[in-house]
């Protein structure tokens, strides 16, 4: 599987967890591009459940508005934990 790195395209998690998450609903199951790493932090979902959580990279992920909302010519950059992201294999 491709590594998370700037420029890599990723798809975000689609699941709707029971408890706290910092993956906003509007950005679930969406395809975006990694911009830069924004530090290393325990997953907020774990912290909210009282678990320590192993620190993991958090990324600025840029989405085209049209891919999130079906309209719009702007971009939305969201800060997302690595656990929320799956790199998309590009066709050779």
């Amino acid at each position: 599987m491709a590594e998370l790195a700037p420029g890599v395209r990723v798809r975000t998690r689609t699941t709707d967890p029971d408890g706290h998450t910092r993956l906003p609903r509007y950005a679930r199951g969406a395809v975006g591009v990694l911009v830069e790493e924004a530090g290393v932090h325990p997953l907020a979902d774990d912290r909210a459940r009282g678990r320590a959580g192993a620190p993991q990279p958090v990324w600025h992920v840029r989405f085209a508005a049209a891919d999130l909302f079906g309209a719009g010519d702007h971009t939305v950059t969201v800060e997302l934990w690595a656990d929320y992201l799956t790199p998309i294999e590009e066709d050779a």
Partner: peptide, 8 residues
């Protein structure tokens, strides 16, 4: 460009 400051 909208920045969603929803994390750290």
């Amino acid at each position: 460009s909208v920045w969603d400051a929803s994390a750290e």
